[in-house]
Each structure stands twice: as C-alpha cells, then as structure tokens.
C-alpha cells in the first residue's frame, strides 16, 4: 500500500468524512445538554443585533461549558468590518 500511496493525490473519501464529522460533532457537543431555548435565544439575539448592525446568520456563536458544578454560557458576536457599517452595508 505504501508504494501505491506515492501515486495518490486526492485525500481519501474516508479522511474527508472523518474531518467533516470531527467539526460537526464538536459544534453539536458545544450546546449539548443545554436548555432547548439556546437555539431560539441565538435567533432572537441575531434579530436584535441585526436592527443595529448588519451581520450574517453565523454572527452569533453559543458555547455552553460545564466546570466543577457551574455552567458558563459564552456568546460571541462577530461584527462586520468598520468599512461595511451603517447605510453602506455590503450587498
């Protein structure tokens, strides 16, 4: 098999599958076990922020962490570049 690998260029479909799974599973675990309202909360926050700043649908990220009996809800909001603010929002 090692000899054959010299002629292989594309990553195998199995390694593509593994990489895609690694990312989506990590993302889904970040809100696992949290209250069901997390996705609704995220949606409403997005609407409120959108009233002031034109952000994309992925702008609000939610992470729930559990450490030694307490829970930490992390919200991160990615704002667009200064050049794209206000009325001159990108199309």
């Amino acid at each position: 098999m090692r000899l054959l690998e010299l002629f292989r260029r594309k990553p195998s479909s199995a390694s593509v599958a593994k990489e895609r799974l690694r990312i989506i599973v990590a993302q889904e675990r970040s809100t696992r076990g949290g209250p069901d309202y997390l996705t609704m909360l995220r949606g409403e926050l997005l609407q409120v922020i959108y009233k002031y700043v034109q952000v994309g649908p992925d702008a609000v990220q939610i992470h729930l962490q559990r450490e030694d009996g307490h829970e930490l809800l992390q919200l991160s909001v990615a704002l667009p570049d200064k050049t794209e603010n206000g009325s001159s929002a990108s199309p």
Partner: peptide
Amino acid sequence: RVTAGEMMSVDDVKEIL
C-alpha cells in the same frame, strides 16, 4: 473498503466518538 480509503476505520470512529 477501509484499506482502500473508502470507509472510516475503527480508529477513526473511536476518535470521533
């Protein structure tokens, strides 16, 4: 199929889960 790179291996699945 695992050898051919067409299927995730036991180790791949163990690692992800």
